[in-house]
């Protein structure tokens, strides 16, 4: 008896690829990936222009784009973008610069982790925003307290992800390296560090999101510059298109940060299936 394997393989091929045969494959893929978001914006534009949505609250997108463009060309928004990137950037880089090395040490040396874990858990569970008044009292109303607030919230995701990554390294791989006479330093460099890279990247992406989230909060509460401030300020002055322009800028910053990290991860983790 023979089995009709080719026939079975043809049957499991999904039908919709055949029906989409007429459209060019590139267009079909673009429609599948971005169709819904395009429809969302198109719906917004139409609903606002026709008047299904109150244009005072949801202005048509062309007015938002106009506000964004004039904000950028006049340079008014550029200052806000620069200061926001600076705040989030300094905090993120400091958090990463401290979080990764600390996580690598804590993940490897049990007594250090045991000693630091309770206090870290307490700090982590204390909302960073609740501590903002404390930071202001300590560091003043200037840049330092804002950057420190973002740094405070940003360090935990990267720190915990790094600790987790180091602790989850397969003990059998470490033993294999040991069996070839690898020193502790070599095992760290050649086994533990590369094995932790994927979870470190998970932490980096979480931290980047957190940094932007806290940036907005800090700028909304106590700033006179920055994209977060512009969102609030535009709303007070009823410049709704400008408000949306600032909101879209923030979304774009988040997307851009994530895209950079994903790109970096793909380059560093070509070996891993998850990064493909």
């Amino acid at each position: 008896m023979t089995y009709d394997l080719t026939g079975a393989a043809q049957r499991v091929r999904p039908k919709w690829t055949i029906s989409a045969k007429g459209i060019s494959p590139v267009l079909g893929k673009a429609a599948a990936d971005y169709g819904l978001i395009f429809a969302f914006f198109a719906g917004w534009q139409i609903a606002s222009t026709v008047g299904w949505l109150n244009p005072a609250v949801f202005p048509p997108l062309d007015r938002v784009a106009q506000a964004l463009w004039s904000g950028i060309t006049s340079g008014a928004l550029l200052d806000d973008i620069a200061i926001s990137i600076q705040r989030a950037g300094i905090a993120f880089i400091s958090a990463v610069g401290l979080g990764i090395p600390l996580g690598l040490v804590m993940g490897q040396i049990k007594p250090v982790e045991r000693a630091l874990d309770p206090i870290l858990q307490l700090f982590r569970q204390t909302s960073a925003l609740a501590l903002y008044p404390v930071f202001i009292l300590l560091l003043g109303l200037g840049e330092t307290s804002k950057v420190f607030l973002i740094f405070w919230a940003t360090i935990f995701p990267i720190l915990l992800a790094t600790i987790g990554g180091v602790k989850e390294v397969d003990a059998k791989l470490i033993e294999m390296a040991r069996s070839f006479g690898a020193s502790r330093a070599t095992i760290f460099r050649r086994v533990i560090l590369p094995a932790s890279v994927p979870s470190i990247f998970v932490g980096l992406r979480l931290s980047a999101t957190t940094a932007l989230l806290l940036l907005i909060a800090a700028e909304m509460i106590g700033a006179n510059k920055g994209i977060g401030f512009q969102v609030m300020n535009a709303q007070y002055n009823f410049q709704i298109p400008l408000m949306f322009a600032a909101i879209f800028l923030l979304a774009f910053l988040g997307l851009a940060a994530n895209a950079v990290l994903v790109l970096l991860q793909r380059r560093l983790c070509r070996w891993s299936v998850a990064s493909q």
Partner: peptide
């Protein structure tokens, strides 16, 4: 002495060549 384990215990971030050369490189 060299050990061959029950599981291959390959380092997933190294190619076949990198894995085979691993023992020599750590030495």
């Amino acid at each position: 002495r060299a050990v061959i384990f029950q599981e291959p215990r390959l380092l997933p971030w190294l190619t076949v060549l990198g894995n085979v050369a691993f023992g020599l490189e750590v030495q």
